[in-house]
Write a protein that binds this DNA or RNA. Sequence first.
DNA 1: GGACGTTTGTGCGAGTCCGCACGGAACATT
DNA 2: AATGTTCCGTGCGGACTCGCACAAACGTCC
Lengths: 238, 238
Amino acid sequence: MKVEEKGTRGDGNQLLARMPAALADLMLTHLESVDLPQGMIIEQPDEAVEHVYFPTRGVISIVAMTPEGGARIEAGLVGREGMSGSMVVLGTDRSPHQTTVQIGGAGYRMETARLQEALQQDALRERLLHYCHALSIQTAHTALANAKLKLDARLARWLLMCHDRIEGDEVTLTHDFLSTMLGVRRAGVTVSLHILEGQGLVRATRGLIRILDREGLEEMVGGCYGVPEAEYARLLTG
Amino acid sequence: MKVEEKGTRGDGNQLLARMPAALADLMLTHLESVDLPQGMIIEQPDEAVEHVYFPTRGVISIVAMTPEGGARIEAGLVGREGMSGSMVVLGTDRSPHQTTVQIGGAGYRMETARLQEALQQDALRERLLHYCHALSIQTAHTALANAKLKLDARLARWLLMCHDRIEGDEVTLTHDFLSTMLGVRRAGVTVSLHILEGQGLVRATRGLIRILDREGLEEMVGGCYGVPEAEYARLLTG
DNA sequence: GGACGTTTGTGCGAGTCCGCACGGAACATT
DNA sequence: AATGTTCCGTGCGGACTCGCACAAACGTCC
């Protein structure tokens, strides 16, 4: 079960890959291959997490919410570049957020206790803390986007972030799902998608969005895309 | 220069207080007392931070921005319950955010390198990582508030968070400052403040806002206030 | 006490998004 | 083929915030 053995692009989780061999071995003994079906709830607010997940395919969504769940918004997006359960790296086993599988896929998981042990290793801890840093930058820029961007641009930003985390150019999601992530009306997503389609940036059909023009999308988002990605690259790539 | 020696409520930084004596001693040898004048820039985007700050009075603001600075929004608020330079705790010496002193005060500072050394101590690292966790929850809920709340409520939330971090009930800030933090027009802040005043929740005069009714403010914000505060209390208080 | 800069109050038209609501289209099941 | 379910398209009035612009109030410095 070597994480990086399959040859095609993007196989394996990028946090687990690029790790010193000794560490990789340590991790591998505790990693378990799992399926990540769409809709699976990975973490519930204020409940101890039993496993942390390292996706290799699919996208996981971290959702901030009020205690009663009256308001919900996506605060973080995780794909094969990251992991769920960042709070474990930060020394606690629960958080007030909910974490779900947004786009089905697969990955590895590890018992929380095993990760806590492995975090004794300085090199591993450093790498995962760097990821927590990148994730917090992502959240901050989501706050920025929520405050300053129009719905079209926020949608474009979300599609870009999602595109970074999948293989190919097709996102299989309904407008309804997207509206929850962005915290807007479903109908608003429909209209905004039409705008993006009108610009030739995407092509949407029932339950599926195909990204046609990444650069066009980036242009539409302006400076609100790219900062978290650059920070991730600085600390965790290469 | 003992951190907690002054007798009045709230003196001292709460991250530094409540620390095992051995750790406190370790820290104290490296802490330096400093003034935090309003407007002081503590961290610049993508520049190495030289010191981390532990306020005892005043409020520090972490601002997420686009690379050109075209869009800015407050992503985090830090008072005597916290520290600047969380990215150092997460293993890097820079971030794309800007950090400034929003309300003047005072505190302690420490050279980044000294903190990096001190973080070898498990107990200190754990405590500061817990703080990073609480801070990231705060940022996530700012994203939530930016997406879902009306301006009045966002303003009320900001005032509550600020009130938690100061002594007394008076916030000395202009509408213009507030508008930058909330990412809205200055005139919008003026109008929203009138609404809060109309409800008897605050009293505003030139450059000063007095909080009259905390509970009323909390009610106005709904569930979007309190979650990060509870998480902080769970991990770092008592 | 007059001049200046800062801060606050107010107004107006325009744009965005909301809540609600309904019709139609695509797919699944039987 | 018929039925039910999910998903998407569209419309309308209203609420909120924007951008712009100007006037009034306050404080400071000569």
